[in-house]
């Protein structure tokens, strides 16, 4: 069943732009990205859009649809009423390049700031052995497709450009949590305390756990409950809990 759907698409670049109205054919089973492609093919051949897999796995087609951060390829047209005007804009936290394409290099800068996995000195390549229950938590975070919708929706940087320097964002705080929970990460033996640095260097304290990152995650990772809050608790162990501190002083309490 086809119908003529009404759309508002943001077009422009860093100098300026506006929402433009289009009427495009919509067919049964299509997603928003299909409509954008039809628009390119029929009415706006110079419309810029970043996309790749069309299967919700590459994280390229992140945008805001009716004001909600979503993947265009995973947003079915059937969720909208046929009479509804669907608005598509680029992500509003990052600088726009053109039309629906944004410059997400902020995220790559933040990724480089996170210290990598530290290999255990006593084990060589191929000698890593881990129990499933020890890696289960980290594996959830490895589902991340780096669409940066969580980075985009987080109000700490979305509404406060000045916080971009101090705040790594939910995706990369989750990366710290992943490494801190990794059974073989030897960062602590080298003097790197991921718990404290999450707070001191990567801005964990800015997070006020309002869970928008979790709401928009297309991989349904429980970012707040399983990564950010546990990381806050681990930081509290180090920085705000005198009993844990005392225990670590008295009997060298370990977190193994």
């Amino acid at each position: 069943m086809s119908y003529r759907g009404r759309f508002k698409i943001w077009r422009g670049d860093a100098k300026g732009g506006a929402l433009q109205e289009f009427v495009v054919e919509v067919n049964e089973g299509e997603v928003v990205l299909d409509i954008i492609h039809r628009l390119q093919a029929t009415q706006a051949p110079d419309l810029a859009v970043r996309w790749n897999c069309k299967a919700g796995k590459c994280g390229s087609c992140s945008a805001e649809i009716n004001g909600r951060p979503r993947l265009m390829c995973m947003t079915r047209m059937s969720v909208f009423d046929e009479s509804e005007t669907v608005t598509v804009t680029p992500m509003r936290t990052f600088p726009v390049v053109r039309d629906l394409v944004t410059d997400v290099s902020f995220n790559y800068t933040k990724a480089r700031e996170i210290p990598s996995f530290v290999p255990p000195p006593q084990l060589g390549p191929g000698e890593y052995r881990m129990q499933q229950e020890d890696v289960g938590r980290s594996q959830e975070f490895r589902k991340c497709i780096e669409c940066f919708l969580c980075q985009n929706v987080c109000h700490v940087v979305r509404d406060h450009e000045e916080n971009k320097t101090a705040f790594a964002g939910p995706r990369f705080l989750m990366r710290i949590a992943e490494l801190d929970m990794h059974p073989l990460d030897a960062a602590e033996e080298t003097g790197l305390d991921r718990k404290s640095t999450a707070q001191d260097e990567h801005g964990l304290g800015y997070c006020n756990i309002t869970k928008c990152c979790t709401e928009v995650c297309p991989e349904h990772i429980k970012i707040t409950d399983n990564a950010l809050i546990p990381l806050k608790e681990r930081a509290a162990d180090r920085k705000y809990d005198p009993l844990v501190w005392l225990g670590s002083m008295i009997r060298r309490r370990r977190t193994d």
Binding site: K15, G16, R92, R158
Partner: peptide
């Protein structure tokens, strides 16, 4: 629908350089 927006000096989602 709208006249072309020129980025101003606002912050947040209206920060210059973001989609106006």
């Amino acid at each position: 629908l709208d006249t072309t927006q020129t980025p101003g000096t606002a912050t947040g989602v209206r920060t210059p350089g973001r989609a106006s």
